[in-house]
């Protein structure tokens, strides 16, 4: 699903990264627990979160998350937007709460992290002899 579609479904506004809004997203996830994001999120994904700290952006960056949508009308501080812009991460904001945001995307066919076929989003460990 592409980010333009996601933006429409969530009635979200784009805070930065509009030039990359035509990217295809593999899957999505919702979390306020950054450890969960780091452990579970697949790359090329969108993260929905109610947290708006700078660390949400860093966490997304490390996990290869392409876009973050802040739910329930929350807005990140300007430093977070600047950081995301510099790192090429798309930021959006929606007034919808977490459950409804996830629900709308899931209903429209966006897969969850554990549903994408292994090998596409999650490369897994590659061990060399």
């Amino acid at each position: 699903m592409n980010l333009i579609k996601i933006r429409q479904l969530l009635e979200a506004s784009v805070l930065c990264g509009a030039e990359s809004i035509d990217q295809e997203i593999q899957c999505g996830g919702g979390a306020d627990l950054m450890s969960d994001v780091l452990a579970l999120m697949e790359p090329n994904s969108i993260l929905l979160s109610g947290l708006t700290t700078l660390q949400v952006v860093y966490t997304a960056e490390m996990s290869g998350v392409m876009a973050i949508c802040f739910v329930r009308g929350k807005r990140p501080p300007p430093e977070a937007i600047e950081l995301a812009r510099a790192r090429g991460i798309v930021l959006m904001a929606t007034r919808l709460p977490m459950f409804e945001s996830c629900g709308r995307l899931y209903k429209a066919g966006l897969k969850g992290s554990s549903e994408v076929p292994p090998g596409t989003a999650r490369p897994g460990k590659r061990r060399h002899p």
Binding site: L33, S35, D36, T53, Q55, V56, K125
Partner: peptide, 15 residues
């Protein structure tokens, strides 16, 4: 702030 779930070191080991 979304940290402190006790998964940091285990996650490092896994990765």
């Amino acid at each position: 702030m979304g940290f402190g779930a006790g998964m940091g070191l285990p996650n490092i080991k896994e990765l």
